[in-house]
C-alpha cells in the first residue's frame, strides 16, 4: 500500500523526462501544424461561406435590379404604346379634320364657282333673252306695223290698258 501512495523517484524522473520530451516534440511536429491547419481551414470555410452569402446577396440585388429594370421597361413600353396610340389617333383625327376642311373648302369653292357660273349664265341668259325679245319685238313690230289699221288698233289697245291716274 505504501508503494502505491509514494511516488517512486525513478518513475518521477522518467515521467518528467518523457512528458517534457513528448510535450516539446509534439509542440514542434504536431500541435503547431495541426492547430494552424485547423485554423486555416476554419478561416477558409468561414470566408467561403461569407463570400457565398455575399454572392447570394449580390445575386438577389441583381435579380431585384433586373425586376426593376424590367418593370421600368414595361412601363416605358406601355407609356410609349399609349403615346404612339395617341399620336396615331391625333394624326388620324387631324387628317380627318383636314380632309373634312379641305373637302368643305372644295365644296365651298365649287359652290361659289357654280354660283358665279350661274350668275354669269343668268346674266348671259338675261342679255340673250333681252336681245331675243328685242329681236322678236322688232320682227313683230315690223310685221304688225306693216298694216296701218292694225297700228292704230294697237295704239288704242295700249292706251286703254294704261290707266293714267
Amino acid at each position: 500500500m505504501d508503494a502505491l501512495l509514494t511516488p517512486a523517484f525513478g518513475t518521477v524522473f522518467w515521467a518528467s523526462l518523457a512528458f517534457l520530451t513528448v510535450l516539446f516534440i509534439l509542440r514542434k511536429v504536431a500541435w503547431g501544424p495541426i492547430l494552424k491547419a485547423l485554423n486555416d481551414r476554419e478561416e477558409s470555410i468561414t470566408n467561403s461561406l461569407r463570400e457565398a452569402e455575399k454572392a447570394r446577396e449580390e445575386m438577389a440585388a441583381l435579380n431585384s435590379d433586373n425586376e426593376r429594370l424590367l418593370q421600368e421597361a414595361r412601363s416605358k413600353r406601355d407609356a410609349m404604346l399609349k403615346e404612339s396610340k395617341e399620336i396615331a389617333e391625333r394624326l388620324v383625327s387631324d387628317a380627318k379634320a383636314n380632309a373634312r376642311e379641305a373637302a368643305a373648302k372644295e365644296v365651298e369653292s365649287a359652290r361659289s364657282a357654280i354660283e358665279t357660273e350661274r350668275k354669269a349664265a343668268i346674266a348671259e341668259l338675261k342679255a340673250e333673252v333681252a336681245k331675243l325679245s328685242v329681236d322678236i319685238a322688232e320682227r313683230l313690230l315690223k310685221e304688225e306695223l306693216a298694216d296701218t289699221g292694225k297700228q292704230k288698233n294697237l295704239v288704242d289697245k295700249l292706251i286703254s290698258e294704261s290707266t293714267l291716274s
Binding site: G10, T11, L26, V29, A30, P33
Partner: peptide, 26 residues
C-alpha cells in the same frame, strides 16, 4: 533507482505512439 518499471515502459510506449500518430495527423 531509475529503473524502467512497468509504468515507465507503458509511458514510453504511449509517448512513442502519440508522437507517431500525431505526427502522421500533422
Amino acid at each position: 533507482d531509475i529503473s524502467i518499471t512497468k509504468s515507465v515502459f507503458g509511458m514510453f510506449f504511449v509517448i512513442l505512439l502519440m508522437i507517431l500518430m500525431l505526427r502522421s495527423v500533422a
